[in-house]
Design a protein around this nucleic acid. Structure first.
Lengths: 126, 126, 126, 126
DNA sequence: GTGGTCTAGACCACC
DNA sequence: GTGGTCTAGACCACA
């Protein structure tokens, strides 16, 4: 799996990394139980600091997307992904709200917005 | 118009402010041409620093949502909002992508996601 | 003579006023010895504060472009315009420098820049 | 590269700084990809506040002259300078107009004005 | 170490 | 009164 980082983006690298891995899982490129490169390996591959990769992994582990075994390394959680609890729905809601507000201001209709979402869905699932 | 800030959020205050004002415009609570409180006024109302409010205003000005007259103060852009240019669409796309990836991972179906968006649309427009 | 003000510009109104009057003289629309509206008159015509017009007039008077008689009112200096002293040349030089620097950075050639100046010359002189 | 500031000038420090850096790029003293001092470093060098330097950097970043990496610091945009779009030409035109008007009033001929521009061009490019 | 954010308080230009 | 500029000093996120 190829990870794309934009070192000049406003988004911190560790978040880009987190997002890329989640997108990899969503798209099926990373399957449950599949191994991920070690922290050092990925850091070296991407040319970023080890701490940066570690931070992304810790975020993913804490949310339940991956498991980190001291010896066996890092794997996509074989017991399934974290679910749709209320806390997540609430955070998703808060996260989307500013995007939708701005879209309305700029004159984007609801249907156009939904269409864009559908396009992204298709694009991720391929 | 009542603005709600969460001083303990990870989102910087000036961005929360920016988002709240955009939502206010989207919802129609703030109409084109309507005046906004002066930087000092709003800062005092919200209990934050003048410069924090100013930063939010500058962002909104730069994007074309508001006009800042040196003396007359701040008004919602009476000539209409910024439009749907490609640059914006691109940024919207990039911004939504991580949310959709995570939603897919967590087992949220496309229809459920779209429904949530529709709910937010309704909620903002009231 | 019709003065055009942009109340939303970054440039202070009194400077826009000063510049417009100078351009009027340069273009020949205002001739030496010709009368200008009184401070109150012009302020009322333009819908701006009296002090603002006064500030523009004071600037023009100090530089020698106009004369202000307590009774007779304001006239374009009938004894001719201020000349090309070294101080002015120096200030012109300093003022143009940033424009030329940026033009170079953005890839505008010297000839293209000079052409733009010539166009402005023609446009003012008509 | 040596920057000269005039703390008593009417031009705000952050603008002087912006102009100096642009002139540095135009003259070739600052090359594309070259690093600039950190905000704190430059502030300390110049004896001004960090925020003043930051404001200049933010202006330059927004216009596309430099890139700001959160950790690596500031560099002259290695992908080249911003181009000659219509918006810039318009602003250049508006910026030059008052200078040309005044030059005409003061009896400076078109050729003399163009000559001065050429001199500045040479002076910057060296 | 870097830039990002926030505060507190000051003076000035403009109208 | 408004926003614009500048200072001084603080804490945090990031790498």
């Amino acid at each position: 799996m190829l990870l794309k980082l934009n070192l000049e983006s406003e988004t911190p690298i560790y978040l880009q990394l987190r997002n890329s891995i989640i997108e990899g899982i969503a798209s099926g490129q990373l399957k449950e139980g599949e191994a991920l490169p070690s922290v050092r390996m990925m850091a070296s591959d991407l040319g970023v600091n080890m701490h940066t990769v570690n931070k992304a992994y810790q975020l993913l582990k804490q949310a339940g997307f991956i498991l980190i075994h001291r010896q066996k390394g890092v794997v996509v959680n074989p017991d399934g992904m974290p679910g749709l609890d209320d806390e997540y729905k609430e955070s998703l809601n808060s996260g989307l709200r500013p995007f939708i507000s701005e879209a309305i201001c700029r004159g984007m209709g609801e249907s156009e917005f939904l269409k864009m979402c559908q396009t992204i869905f298709k694009d991720i699932k391929q």
